[in-house]
């Protein structure tokens, strides 16, 4: 890590803070926006996401090394130090640099898969809820089947049958297997108009996709190595966990943080959109009747 990287990292934190502040100014104009920001996990969650997005975009300046660069292959597994912030991995690559570039891959997969899942889920759910009758029955039975097949097995089957899959196909598959829950909720929403359930569903799709990518990559069946996804990084460091714990621990921590931020935001958003809680704000304290 040189001075430039440190400055860039600080800059990223400031940008993330500024983004949260700007959003807050924008959103607090509405009642549900105020409720959202009053939720204790809303601001930290937003900040964590904004921070990771910023460093993902600014990866070349935040990361001291290119993601594939092997520093000294005869001397791998260096512990965290000022030079290698999070140490080096068994292939003598800088873990911090790979973590930063990996944010692009992992967050990208999460975002795209969530988008695909939300789009298809919404479309199917809306069609089912709108047309009712046999269209509804047919689509919802399809959803039953989809929910019965665990995603990881469907993806494992696909990977096993098609040998090597391109990254974009994988992302698409993750998205295509993640919409069943969303569509069921959207259908209920068309029937009863509740946006908060949609938030719950979208959150599950997004967080689930990040975790699924990590799992698949960990098994060596996800993002093809040496691309630096967080799941790949855990897989790379796994077998030398006992001598170099940092190589697998930090990417896992990054995943946990991002998914936690995602969940926290989902909680805050759901509560903000909850009409029952909306009623509480205007009410007087206590049930004086």
């Amino acid at each position: 890590m040189n001075v430039g990287n440190w400055l860039a990292l600080g800059g990223a934190a400031i940008v993330a803070l500024a983004a949260v502040a700007a959003l807050r100014r924008r959103i607090t104009a509405t009642a549900s926006g105020r409720r959202f920001f009053r939720h204790p996990t809303a601001v930290p969650g937003l900040f964590v996401l904004a921070f990771f997005v910023t460093i993902a975009i600014a990866a070349p300046v935040v990361a001291p090394y290119p993601p594939y660069f092997q520093i000294d292959i005869t001397n791998p597994d260096l512990p965290p130090s000022t030079q290698f912030l999070l140490g080096t991995d068994p292939y003598s690559r800088d873990v911090w640099s790979r973590l930063v570039y990996g944010a692009r891959v992992s967050l990208g997969i999460g975002a795209v898969a969530m988008l695909v899942a939300a789009t298809i889920g919404t479309a199917v759910g809306a069609v089912a809820g709108y047309f009712r009758r046999w269209v509804d029955t047919a689509l919802m039975r399809l959803v039953d089947v989809g929910l019965a097949m665990p995603r990881i097995f469907v993806l494992l089957m696909a990977v096993a049958l098609w040998e090597h899959i391109a990254l974009w196909v994988l992302v698409l598959l993750i998205g295509l297997t993640g919409w069943f829950g969303t569509s069921r909720l959207v259908r209920a929403e068309v029937l009863s108009l509740r946006e908060r359930d949609f938030v719950v569903a979208a959150r599950a799709a997004g967080a689930g996709s990040v975790l699924l990518e990590a799992g698949l990559s960990f098994l060596g069946l996800g993002v093809p190595p040496p691309a630096p996804s967080w799941g790949n990084m855990i897989a790379d460091g796994w077998h030398k966990m006992t001598v170099a714990w940092w190589a697998s621990t930090f990417p896992g921590l990054a995943i946990s943080l991002v998914v936690m931020a995602f969940n926290a935001l989902g909680d805050a958003l759901r509560d903000a959109l909850d009409p029952r809680r909306a009623g509480e704000e205007g009410g007087e304290g206590g049930g004086a009747a």
Partner: peptide
């Protein structure tokens, strides 16, 4: 009328007021 405190009075007798906020 509603809001005059009659229900709170009745709940106070058996100390059924939720604390907090009451």
């Amino acid at each position: 009328e509603s809001g005059c405190g009659k229900t709170v009075t009745s709940l106070s007798i058996l100390r059924l007021i939720p604390e907090p906020p009451g």
